[in-house]
Design a protein around this nucleic acid. Sequence first.
DNA 1: TAGTGGTCTAGACCACAGC
DNA 2: CTGTGGTCTAGACCACTAG
Lengths: 240, 240
Amino acid sequence: MSAAPNQRALHQRISDDLATPIRSGAWPPGFRIPFEHELTSRYACSRATANKAVQSLAAAGLVERRRRAGSFVARPRIQSAVLEIPDMESEITGRGQSYRYELLSARTRRPGDGAEEAMLGPRGPLLELRCRHFAGEAPFAVEERIINLAAVPDAAAVDFGGQPPGAWLLAHAAWTEARHEISAVNPDRSLANALGLTSANACLRVKRWTWRAGAGVTFARQTFPGHAYDLIARFTPGSS
Amino acid sequence: MSAAPNQRALHQRISDDLATPIRSGAWPPGFRIPFEHELTSRYACSRATANKAVQSLAAAGLVERRRRAGSFVARPRIQSAVLEIPDMESEITGRGQSYRYELLSARTRRPGDGAEEAMLGPRGPLLELRCRHFAGEAPFAVEERIINLAAVPDAAAVDFGGQPPGAWLLAHAAWTEARHEISAVNPDRSLANALGLTSANACLRVKRWTWRAGAGVTFARQTFPGHAYDLIARFTPGSS
DNA sequence: TAGTGGTCTAGACCACAGC
DNA sequence: CTGTGGTCTAGACCACTAG
């Protein structure tokens, strides 16, 4: 006995056994799941193990625990979901299309007073890039990016004609916090032109700021033709 | 000794103490955090407690654990973020604007073969609603909704002129799984009219499907004027 | 007040990956 | 082979709350 998890830890098995009827709906919200002491006898385990199993369900939002009362199936709340933000290249190749990347412009400049870059906080000289991603022959997105060279000095020497800034940054600039804003916009003339659209065509815009240790690392504004791209968000309580 | 967590559990304190230098960036990705046995002596606790502290950081994605090697600060991966999906009313009142709701149409019909409702799976008679949410005097969103009466029979008797379907469903129809799609669209004439726009104005569209026990509960398609609404998504590793 | 979950311990064996 | 994390136990005291 004791640790002998050939396949699956016991606490994991208990947790799965409890999660199944919850996810299937067999145990409705408010249903009282077995007490820990019941689990200890049912599974012939210590209470620490039973506790770990139920705790993990609570952490996943599947159950709510109340002292003296027991643990109860939680009502899913609609307030959040996990948004998948795939890498541009894998998103495109995942659809079976060929991926191509093109640098449109690059320049170094001093920090300005735009609201978007101001969210990065104090910043040094900035590398400003404009590039385009293709899915097959069709433009898939235009990406406008600002890199804070004070936070990522190495970026100044990189040739972003050869690789997308997102890929390089992912490998070379760790961040600790990120924020995204998702909106629908009518592209301005320059953007519409780069995407092969008119400004009457709705576009999906994703803005992303990343910080490290409170200092802004980079800001990206990606614009997708509305007909070409959907963001997917899922919420399955307790993906564990 | 033993359980005496007046304020904060010891494992929580250890976890916080470790998370601080990670989040601040003082400990960079790849940095080896203290071994469990070091924590047991530093905090005068058992290994189970130290383990629980570090485990929670691993669950939050802040650290990666490797046998025989130790636990290391993880590199944040960009692939997902938490999307906040606020309730329509609280979203509007949260901006200091008054909220108003209006039912445009309601009818019961047999299931059809549309792709969106087909995602709900097998379904009985459907309640089809069309309604409008206002922020102050301005239309904020049009919501087109399908409710599977086989899954939520009570909905047939509800007066949705008085309350938005989302609010009623939240209270009366639990779900176990949800999926969202976010896109940018040009509204058709009817939609543009309801929103006080033209079809040249980009709109943000959120589609949401919810299921319970594998059976489709409801489908909602919300359309927002692009200039009026942004979705926000955050990723801060280990919000614990 | 009784009983649930919350937390902790001191020890143990095991699996596995570095060395 | 060594040492780390992974897991487990048998017991304990405490905090909170439902009744």
